[in-house]
Simulated scan of single mutants.
Amino acid sequence: MVRRLLVGFGCLIAITMLTAGLTLAKTVKIRVQSVIPAKADEVTMLNQFGKDVSDLTNGEVQIEVLPAGAVVGVKETLEAVDKGLVEGGFAWTHYWSGYHPAAMLFGSPVAGAGVGIDNIAFISWFMYGGGRELYDQLWTEMGMNIKGFMLQPVGPEALGWFKEPITSMEDFRKYRFRTPPGIPGQTYKDIGIAAVAMGGGDILPALEKGVIDAAEWCCPKPDSVFGFQKVLKHYYLQGLHQVVVNADIYINGDVWKKLTPHQQKAIEVAANASLMKSLAYRIYENGKALKDLTENHGVILHDTPQDYFKAYMEAAKATLEKNAAKNPFFKKVWDSQKAFADVAVPFWAGAQMSNANLGMAFSKSKK
């Protein structure tokens, strides 16, 4: 009897140890190196995404956010994920346009892809218009061993910050202007702007040293966190260069394949939730920041000169057509966006007129 109890107890211990081992085996830590400082709003939202993933997997998948430069330089982030030097990365996919020009069509489709797609319509294309499948194909086209997820849509981004008011393109062309990399920045050069691409953390020092005279980054909240209001006071909200912008997470393909189906689904669900949560977060946070900038920091809000829109849109379309003629996959993605726009934009643009008129009526009633 005692022998049987001992044998049974031994089996119980063995099963417990085996179960514990299986539990430990399922626990995965994904280190995600960001391309921006830890204080940025985007990192706040990325941490919220990580918590959702942890909650949905009962703590099996842990996402640890690393600041820019923690493992490799910002420009090496994507390659580091591809090679497995770090399990994940976080950036805007247009940063990688040097690997493939179509990256811009996902990270920052210049001037709404030239066909009127705004940040909300873009999510519709991505989720239901074939965009997600093309996004997955992008990494194969790049030759990267990566599984990507869009997390944080934003837009339209502000035109930017200036030393003095600008009333025309002639005024605009007087300034050395920080722009995003890739096609959106190149389009500024095409319309005669002295465009300078640089990382977010370098913008304020460059303004303070006079390396550049004007700058864009994002929107009122992120801009104020970076402190541009300390140097420049004239702010323009309406711009075309990044009507749509998406910050994404990149996971090493081998790491992704080792996750269980449940863990993979949890990341997908958390990513889809992040699309909506980010939009909601941005509206309120940017509203509070704009109110603070104009009421407490001497920032003056202006309307963008009308001749900017025609000049930038024409240059953007020319750039899109040139890239489509050169690259089959770029053409495939842009054709998909154009086909979506033919169906969705007339409805959505018309509906948005009601929203815009509603908001402007309220804003004007307060003056």
Rank of each mutant, 00 (worst) to 15 (best):
G84M: 08
G88M: 10
C218H: 08
S354H: 10
Y188D: 01
M127Q: 11
G192L: 09
V154K: 09
S354G: 07
I251W: 04
V71Q: 05
W334H: 10
M198R: 05
K83E: 08
F49D: 03
V65D: 05
G201T: 12
S365D: 08
P37E: 14
S54P: 00
E314C: 12
I183G: 01
Q238R: 13
R4C: 09
Q264F: 03
V61L: 03
I36D: 05
D248I: 04
P184M: 08
K338P: 01
K83V: 03
M104Q: 06
N327R: 05
P180I: 02
T93L: 14
I267K: 09
V245C: 13
P261M: 03
W217S: 02
A315D: 01
R173S: 05
F226N: 04
K367N: 09
K366L: 15
H302W: 14
V244T: 05
A315G: 01
T93A: 12
V343Q: 11
D335G: 06
N327Q: 07
P109Y: 04
L24G: 00
S168R: 10
A356R: 07
V7D: 11
E295T: 12
S354Q: 09
V255T: 10
F122A: 05
C218Y: 05
F122N: 03
W334F: 07
G73Y: 13
L232P: 04
V211S: 03
L232F: 06
S54R: 04
A70Q: 11
L320Y: 10
S365N: 10
S354V: 10
G182K: 03
L320E: 06
A311Q: 06
G359E: 10
L290P: 05
K265H: 00
P305S: 08
L105A: 05
S54T: 01
S365M: 14
T294L: 11
A113G: 06
G287C: 08
L259N: 00
G185D: 01
V211C: 00
N47F: 06
W92V: 02
N355F: 13
R176I: 02
V110E: 02
G130D: 13
E133W: 10
K39Q: 13
H241S: 01
A206G: 04
I283D: 12
F347G: 01
N119T: 02
E321S: 09
A351Y: 15
P180C: 03
I212Q: 02
W348E: 07
N47T: 08
A214Y: 04
L18C: 09
A80F: 13
Q62Y: 04
Y99D: 06
E170R: 11
Q264P: 01
V32L: 13
V244D: 01
